[in-house]
Simulated scan of single mutants.
Amino acid sequence: MCPPEYYEVAYAINPWMDTATPVDTELALKQWERLRETLTGLGHTVHVLTPEANLPDMVYAANGAFMVDGTAYGARFKHPQRTAEAIAHRAFYESNGWTYVAPAQTNEGEGDFAFLPDAYGGLVLAGYGFRTEVAAHAEAQDVLGRPVVSLRLVEPRFYHLDTALAALDDGAIAYYPAAFSEPSQRVLRQLFPDAVTADDADAHAFGLNLVSDGRHVVLNSEATGMAQKLADAGYVPVLVELSELKKGGGSVKCCVAELRP
């Protein structure tokens, strides 16, 4: 995770961002700290990446890489405003002794990749359509040695996979069907017939931009409908307020890069 010390909405590169809407950086820091405390309180170790000036989106740490089996497939951001973030993430992974592979293709890390180790022998779901190029899916498959299933995103507000789909445990997902093309919806129905499906209200409340340890599911406090669906499915929802970070187009998952050493 990376604290939002320099967070602001200084430009608009997704439909959620509005440069005319004020951002309370102090409140964003408090909300971020509460998320960090929630994760550590659930027994998880949180590594903190040092934020850098002029990189206001560094708080969305999930976009910096995608790690499986101790190998981090690095990010190559689409928009120039975020390009330098990839350098900081590379330094983090390499300083911790993990293998880092620099990408040749445009991709935005866990923003567009999800890993399900118990699904079909260890499946990677990968989004494209707005940020990550589909060619990066083949590159990720080569780097990580895991099968990758490409899913096309078609709704601009759901510009990253992690706004429209989430791994709930090692083999189950939740997703918002309308964010995907009809062929991709058919693929998801075939692969995950028992998935938890979100409605419009769930998705627009960032109810799928969540982090789950297989039992506890940490998600945006506005997503009360999604929380109930998760509880009905046997999970324990944990609601966290992230109203300021939502202004930049992200919530819980965007703030958390999951490490799989």
Rank of each mutant, 00 (worst) to 15 (best):
A91P: 03
P117W: 06
Y175D: 05
R90H: 11
I173H: 00
S150P: 07
A178K: 13
Y128D: 11
G97Q: 10
F66W: 10
Y100H: 04
W98V: 09
A119E: 02
A65S: 15
N96A: 11
E108I: 09
I173T: 06
F66S: 04
H79E: 12
R131K: 11
A126I: 02
E139N: 04
V154T: 13
P117M: 01
K78F: 07
G74A: 03
Y60T: 13
L153K: 09
S150Q: 10
G74V: 06
R146E: 02
A179G: 14
Y73C: 12
E108A: 08
E110D: 12
G111Y: 09
A72C: 00
R76K: 15
G122F: 13
T163A: 15
Y60A: 08
F158D: 03
P147I: 10
E108G: 08
D118I: 00
T163E: 07
A75Q: 05
H160S: 09
L165G: 04
G129E: 10
P177F: 02
Y176C: 13
D162F: 00
D142V: 11
R82G: 07
L144S: 14
A166R: 09
T99S: 12
A167L: 03
V154Y: 08
Q105F: 04
A166S: 14
P103D: 01
A179E: 13
V148Y: 06
E108N: 07
G111N: 10
I87G: 11
V101D: 05
A61C: 12
F92M: 10
T83M: 07
Q141T: 13
A61N: 15
F66N: 00
V148P: 15
F130V: 02
F130A: 07
A178E: 13
A167I: 14
A65T: 03
A135V: 11
G97A: 05
A91F: 03
R90I: 02
V124I: 14
V101T: 04
S181I: 05
G97K: 02
E139P: 00
T132Y: 06
